[in-house]
């Protein structure tokens, strides 16, 4: 299947979903005013992609900022991945990257980790 990508802009993240390497990445800032509309093609691609069982998927979040509306979309993505792991014989690893001193971004990662049963790595980076 085709890969999926959206180039980053000032209020939308870079999205790169690679169906050959099974590495899915979302990076940057996300504060679109209408996230339901913005993420619609993202969910459509994921639904299609997760239709095939048995994949080993790495999902990388490298966010510097996201609004509360994007926060719910991310949980929805994680829930889809959790369901895939449980029901489609998949194996999903989440890498949550945060800038070393960004306590709020670290906490965001921890809160997602508590809400889904997936391998979750919280990884600090220095800028």
């Amino acid at each position: 299947m085709e890969n999926f990508s959206i180039p980053s802009s000032t209020y939308i993240p870079r999205i790169d979903f690679n169906s050959e390497t099974n590495i899915l990445e979302i990076e940057g800032e996300s504060y679109h005013e209408y996230t339901v509309e913005f993420f619609k093609p993202v969910f459509e691609w994921l639904e299609n992609y997760l239709g095939d069982p048995g994949k080993e998927i790495t999902f990388n979040f490298r966010m510097t900022y996201f609004n509360t509306s994007s926060s719910r979309r991310f949980l929805e993505i994680l829930n889809m991945l959790e369901e895939y792991q449980n029901e489609m014989d998949g194996n999903v690893t989440i890498n949550w990257f945060y800038e070393e001193n960004d306590v709020d971004m670290l906490e965001s990662g921890e809160e997602y980790e508590e809400d889904v049963e997936l391998d979750f790595n919280l990884i600090p980076y220095t800028n």
């Binding site: 005013e33 996230t35 339901v36 509360t68 509306s69 926060s71 719910r72 949980l75 809160e111 809400d115």
Partner: peptide
Amino acid sequence: LYKKYRKQPQRENKPGANLGFID
């Protein structure tokens, strides 16, 4: 409270997540 609200489905005709004030 934030996590509880975030799990709720998107409200009809409201584009926001109903999380802003808690955040």
